[in-house]
């Protein structure tokens, strides 16, 4: 019961402070991982992949997944309800004064500061994924060889994906699930 309450509270905070959509919940989830130990950074990276490749808003998918991993089906429900509760309350309040909210100069000024904040937070969370996906610090600590820091296969795949998703016009519009599926197959074929 305590676990479910804590889960609700953590996701309530996430829903209240994550501004800028699904990806903005990411830094909060890393923070939950660090402060509770309910799941590891590697598990979180896998959850991102699943959330991106299944139907539904990413933020909601992530909450359900984290909740399920932490406390089964009740956890999935509690985490999702926790995430959406602040949204629902805030939107119901704002809906009455929608026009003046949009034109309010303080709201506008606050979001001028919040947008770069969101980008910085998501980038930092992304770097945590880079750390476990493209590098191998454990192996380096064991062997002491500097070259072992680099996960060469992964770095090559990352470079190829980057070129494909940014450089090739026809591929830019493809859904992420295509690249995720291709990466899974490459991971198996080249035993990542």
């Amino acid at each position: 019961m305590m676990l479910l309450l804590r889960l609700f509270w953590e996701f309530f905070k996430t829903g209240l402070f994550a501004v800028g959509g699904g990806m903005a919940t990411l830094p909060f989830l890393y923070n939950i991982s660090d402060s509770t130990g309910w799941f590891t950074h590697a598990q979180l990276a896998d959850m991102i992949a699943v959330s991106e490749s299944t139907p539904g808003p990413i933020g909601v998918n992530m909450a359900t997944y984290v909740g399920f991993t932490t406390a089964g089906i009740p956890g999935a429900v509690v985490a999702t309800v926790g995430l959406v509760t602040p949204s629902v309350i805030i939107i119901l309040l704002i809906a009455r004064v929608l026009a003046s909210f949009r034109q309010n100069k303080y709201v506008d000024a606050a979001f001028y500061g919040l947008r770069p904040c969101s980008v910085g937070l998501i980038a930092a969370a992304g770097l945590l994924v880079v750390k476990i996906a493209l590098f191998d610090f454990d192996l380096f600590h064991q062997t002491g060889r500097l070259l072992d820091v680099f996960n060469v296969k992964a770095l090559v795949l990352a470079a190829v994906l980057l070129i494909l998703t940014r450089g090739v016009k026809q591929l830019k519009k493809l859904h992420p699930v295509v690249f995720i599926a291709a990466s899974a197959i490459i991971g198996i074929l080249f035993s990542f």
Partner: peptide, 22 residues
């Protein structure tokens, strides 16, 4: 192995998301 590959892809997807938001 599949998830190790997928994690690489997640890095790239987040990077692209950051560029777009930026």
């Amino acid at each position: 192995s599949a998830f190790a590959g997928i994690r690489v892809c997640v890095c790239v997807l987040i990077f692209n998301a950051v560029l777009k938001l930026w």
